[in-house]
Nucleic acid binder design. Structure first.
Lengths: 208, 208
DNA sequence: TCTTGTGAACAAATTCACAGCG
DNA sequence: CGCTGTGAATTTGTTCACAAGA
């Protein structure tokens, strides 16, 4: 499948979550407008997004939940699975570990890293925590290709550099800085400060 | 200033962070291409974004850091300040409280809510935590107009409904569900699962 | 009939390119 | 000159609208 836009990948991930819920609830078929409503988008958008999939719905009945789920997962998951590493086991890092622990079978956080000796050498939220110096070794050994940066802003660029050197292909960045990485490495920013300020800004636009 | 697009508001928040750092470092002037580089965008984009501001840079020297900062802040902040409430004092909620505590003078988290009696009646990360039943009262009293949802997915819609009923104008949603709210209320989603799956997807597109 | 799949129309966002100014 | 401010061009993303199928 050639060059799926980032927005579409995001929505596919969202649809998959919903399809999983429907599947667990025993639902067999679903229409584009239903998915649209559940995911906060439009029916046309849903159908366009599924064009990146090889899966075809059937007129009148809609999409088979099971079939679509398999098809979307085929697109999103690497069949052999993927592993991620979290760097920074502070408040936020631990929350992230807890949030993801055991959720996605095909995408697990296989290691955590921190410089504080009190945190290393044991498991945090079920995930083994190593000192940063072990990063290259562990990343290669575990076949990790995604890094999650949850360090203070000052440390983030350095950590990103090391992740990239160790061979990671994508970084999920929670630190409030824009990372610079070689082209070919994907950076996805989750900027909570920006998100909060945006919310606050639009919260007071009401009625104006 | 009429209808600033969400993307632009996000970038303005980003520029402000950078301007603050420059200001603290004693830098007086900055060019659009420098800001572009520091924020991961383009010079033309930076200049377009500043058109929503009344501030004018000067040819040859660029923008005065102090002047721009004041102008951007005038756009993003409500002069009297704004207050937010966090709902859900679990792992993630506490990390959010710690992350924001005392950062923005014009935007503070004034209250937290949780249903667990072990968490209420005291301060968490310096923020007073109340039972959910107190929500309407506290929100009105504190003049809160932004809600932050950090509850499990199952509780999120109910919490959102109550926040809206209590008069909140914007919700920052960390729960992995799409909230439905009356039009006029702004919802900003921070979906960590989607973000991680996007990162993983693009991490393995390298060289392909 | 009610739905999908999709080209065409439209809208939004970004980038280009250049006039104007110190 | 080297910069900003901005209309125009372009690209990207979304929505419309309708043929085709069960």
């Amino acid at each position: 499948m050639p060059n799926i836009p980032g927005r579409t990948v995001g929505r596919l991930s969202l649809y998959r979550r919903i399809l999983n819920q429907l599947h667990e609830a025993g639902v067999q078929f679903v229409r584009s407008h239903e998915l649209a409503q559940m995911s906060g988008t439009t029916a046309a958008q849903v159908r366009k997004d599924f064009m990146y999939t090889d899966y075809a719905g059937s007129p009148r009945r809609g999409y088979s939940v099971e079939g679509l789920l398999a098809s979307v997962s085929g697109l999103l998951d690497r069949p052999e699975g993927q592993a991620a590493a979290l760097v920074g086991a502070g408040n936020l890092g631990r929350a992230i570990l807890a949030f993801f622990s055991g959720r996605r079978p095909k995408l697990r956080i296989a290691a955590a890293f921190d410089n504080d000796p009190a945190k290393t050498g044991r498991a945090i939220e079920g995930c083994p925590c190593h000192p940063l110096s072990k990063m290259p070794e562990v990343i290669v050994r575990e076949g990790i290709d995604v890094g999650i940066v949850a360090t203070p802003a000052e440390a983030a660029q350095d950590v990103a550099d090391r992740l990239v050197e160790s061979g990671v292909g994508g970084i999920l960045n929670f630190a409030p800085v824009s990372l610079s990485v070689p082209s070919g490495v994907h950076v996805e920013d989750v900027d909570m400060t920006v998100a909060l300020e945006k919310t606050a800004f639009f919260a007071r636009q009401r009625g104006k």
